[in-house]
């Protein structure tokens, strides 16, 4: 009887033991593979940012936001003296061209005369600025995971998934050419997986030298530089956003009239390095917009808190914007 008891106990022990033994390596394996995917993801992301700055290429692409489709021409290259040239042309509707020579970016709108230049060595307008920089600065709040590849634009690509660690921001899917490191396709989506914006290259030609069409552009006339409005003072309502997702830091704050309107507003711009969000505070009587909200490539919410209109705009899920808007608080320590 005792022998049988012992036998059973031994069996149980063995079984339990083997179970524990079996579980451990399994967990080890998943965390290992996540780590591997993350390491590979960072290497591929950095390769992409390098490619966006160094390749000589001519590409056409289609950008879609909802049912709006915009085909574009995209060219990039470097002169022999290392000057970077990038040109983006919208092919549908208004003739919008973005030309960048080194750190001088110009936006041309034809035929209206509101063209301007920016002092920026990143072409703002197609991809998030962070895509031109190393992943390192995004790492505290985002994760990039390498997945399995796919054929995109006739090329063998590496799939990357860029997600926020707290799931409060939009996610990106990236398809990067294995050969050149070039971004071939991009999707921006809500945490639920609804695609809000897509960029798909439809042709891509890599060149050994600067594309011919870019070689002449050094002589092109550049419009005046974009300047801040002169009627700017510091924020004066004594209110400040009391909650932001992790990693968002205040970039600017001021009090001024909203673009081309007579609506005075306290303004706050926050950024986490990839995503930016604007917060506007106005007197409700002065602004007069009804409470409304929508989620999209740029989400928007307008709500009323204690007689103040609170308006939040940014590439963030509506839920996050709502939480920002609902947490406007009295400023305890004056800023500057």
């Amino acid at each position: 009887m005792t022998t049988i008891k012992w036998f059973i106990l031994t069996l149980v022990w063995l079984f339990a033991g083997s179970n524990v033994l079996a579980q451990e390596p399994a967990e080890q394996a998943t965390s290992d593979s996540v780590e591997r995917a993350e390491n590979a993801g960072m290497i591929w992301f950095d390769r992409m940012s390098e490619a966006l700055r160094s390749l000589n290429f001519e590409a056409t692409l289609v950008q879609t936001q909802g049912d709006r489709i915009q085909p574009m021409l995209w060219m990039h290259g470097r002169h022999t003296d290392d000057l970077e040239v990038e040109l983006l042309i919208h092919l549908n509707g208004a003739d919008i061209r973005i030309l960048r020579l080194g750190d001088h970016t110009s936006y041309y709108f034809q035929p209206t005369d509101n063209s301007y230049s920016l002092q920026s060595d990143v072409t703002y307008g197609l991809l998030p600025v962070a895509f031109y920089e190393k992943f390192e600065q995004l790492q505290p709040y985002y994760q990039v995971l390498a997945g399995r590849g796919m054929r995109v634009t006739g090329r063998d690509t590496q799939y990357l998934r860029l997600v926020s660690r707290d799931n409060s921001r939009y996610h990106y899917s990236l398809w990067v050419d294995r050969e050149s490191g070039m971004l071939m396709k991009m999707q921006m989506m809500t945490p639920q997986g609804d695609v809000l914006e897509q960029i798909q290259l439809t042709s891509f030609q890599q060149r050994a030298d600067l594309p011919v069409s870019l070689s002449d552009l050094r002589g092109v006339q550049r419009p005046p530089r974009l300047h801040d409005s002169r009627q700017v003072s510091s924020a004066q309502m004594g209110l400040i956003p009391g909650w932001m997702p992790d990693g968002f830091e205040l970039q600017r704050s001021n009090h001024r009239y909203l673009y081309e309107t007579q609506v005075a507003a306290d303004y706050f711009l926050y950024s986490d390095g990839l995503t930016d969000v604007s917060v506007y505070l106005s007197e409700q009587s002065e602004q007069g917009l009804p409470p409304l909200a929508f989620e999209g490539p740029e989400s928007f919410i307008n709500t009323v808190v204690n007689g103040h209109s609170v308006t939040v705009v940014g590439k963030l899920p509506l839920e996050t914007l709502r939480r920002i808007a609902e947490n406007i608080s009295t400023r305890t320590t004056p800023v500057n």
């Binding site: 002092q119 801040d228 309107t261 950024s271 928007f300 705009v313 940014g314």
Partner: peptide, 23 residues
């Protein structure tokens, strides 16, 4: 119109901020 003003203002501030950071 006001809604558009917010959207444009947001875009413009992003560009100004980028310019500021770079200088």
């Amino acid at each position: 119109k006001l809604l558009q003003a917010y959207m444009r203002d947001h875009q413009q501030q992003l560009q100004l901020s980028l310019q500021e950071r770079q200088s």
